[in-house]
């Protein structure tokens, strides 16, 4: 019963923040509303027994990605609060596309008889995730480090070019 109340609270927070992100005319409000979405999703992870993922979500999404995004919004202020309307896809066609796609997916979700083998036990997950990373997921784990290195170098190269162009 408590789990249901917690779920609905988190769902309302997440969806309302996402609506502000999607529909706000001011990009600054959009970026800050993303905080509510990320925190709500973190709560959902906790509800699903993913304690390590909860911390990762707080650290990387809220502490990292959101801060970088808000930095970028602030650095490009002035042109940042552009009109939401787009001459290619307006709000109404976009909402129509989303509604149609959503209706199809909702129908598919409700019709599919999900196999239900049970629910996972609520144990600390860090130990098992560490074993999974260094066991069956070792190759993706190593490739991920290469991807992060490439992203690091790429970001430096791109921003250095920008600095050089300005100088």
């Amino acid at each position: 019963m408590i789990a249901v109340i917690v779920f609905w609270t988190l769902a309302v927070i997440t969806v309302l923040s996402a609506m502000i992100t999607a529909f706000s005319r001011n990009i600054v409000y959009s970026a800050f509303a993303l905080l509510g979405s990320f925190a709500g999703v973190a709560g959902i992870y906790l509800l699903l027994g993913a304690d390590f993922l909860f911390i990762i979500q707080i650290f990387i999404y809220i502490g990292g990605i959101l801060v970088v995004t808000i930095f970028a919004v602030m650095l490009t202020q002035g042109v940042a609060d552009m009109n939401i309307s787009n001459r290619i896809v307006g709000l109404i066609p976009a909402a129509l596309i989303a509604l149609l796609a959503g209706a199809v997916m909702l129908e598919a979700i409700l019709r599919t008889p999900w196999p239900h083998p049970g629910t996972a036990a609520l144990n600390p997950t860090t130990h098992a995730i560490g074993n999974a990373f260094l066991g069956p997921f070792l190759l993706p784990f190593e490739i991920a480090s290469v991807v992060l290195l490439a992203a690091l170098i790429g970001a430096i190269v791109i921003s250095r070019q920008a600095a050089r162009a300005e100088a």
Binding site: V41, M82, S85, P93, A94, I97
Partner: peptide, 16 residues
């Protein structure tokens, strides 16, 4: 699904 649809509306309508 709700989060995905709001995200795709955001992607479709933004010029920023």
């Amino acid at each position: 699904l709700a989060l995905f649809l709001l995200g795709s509306i955001c992607v479709l309508t933004r010029r920023n």
